[in-house]
Amino acid sequence: MTTETQRSGGIEVESLVREFKNGPRAVDGIDLEVARGEIYGFLGPNGAGKSTTVLMLTTLLPPTSGSARVGGFDVVEQGPQVRASIGAALQEAALDPLLTGREHMRLQTALHGLGKAERESRGNELLERVGLAHAADRKVGGYSGGMKRRLDLALALAHRPRILFLDEPTTGLDIQSRTALWEEVARLAAEDGVTVFLTTQYLEEADALANRVGIIDHGHLVAEGTPAELKAEIGRPTVEAAPREEGDRERMTAVLGRFGQGAGSSPRGVAVRLDGGESQLAEVVRALDAEGIAIEHLQLHAPSLDDVFLAKTGRSLEGAAEEEPADAETETAAPA
């Protein structure tokens, strides 16, 4: 149930399909809903259909069938109204190498019809906010990849959109810039109530940033929920342990095996998915102690979105690009 106000700042998608001429059904019947002020993470491997979905929701590509309302407006029938309420930073930061950062801001604000005085102040404010004030008068051709992405974000925010689309905003960024961008996006949602639709290939990103995550594969939404819900659905955390004496490795594997299924191993350590969940950790330690096995290292891994992806598609997200055969073998045992 969505109220009118929620809907007017949110996104509603119903059986959305896009089929390319002589191409694949890139998006094959997607339903989803994003509430106002929510950060929705759209997660999937290369070629899953993330960008195609974003293009349709931003009115840049007409859907083959299905419907979508963005900010309360229909993306097919009410393109101009949709565009007025959204901002987007697409996968390829489309910037003009011959223009400076400030000139880009000026252009973008002008395109959106902002008044002259506001154009200048809004531009400066945003350049400041994404940390480009010092480089504002340099040509974009000389910007680094991270600077370009930040400028692209600033441009997307020029007309104070209520809804923001970010297509793989942190691909190619270093950890510092990535964290800074996460903080900015989180702030936009929390303080300004901006709805964010963000695609990513990074689990950490969806996990850290999104209120809710949709996992897309081959044009289908295969799972949806909060990161915690999705992980809970898969359930079991993994414990990873390494013996102090290399000779104890065999025995350790045997002890751990009592608590659940093996889940791969590192060069020295052993990993097991705990059948009984986190609370079994104490029992594991006691059992190892009882056998007299000295522990070098012990770690509990919460279930990750990768586990979710694996559970839903039978493939690991890392390297699950479309070129891979659907029955790609997985090095870890599939959970029940």
Partner: peptide, 14 residues
């Protein structure tokens, strides 16, 4: 070709 056109298509209400 470079995608800058998309910036226009996106920003332009008309």
């Amino acid at each position: 070709e470079s995608g800058f056109g998309r910036r226009y298509m996106l920003a332009a209400s008309h």
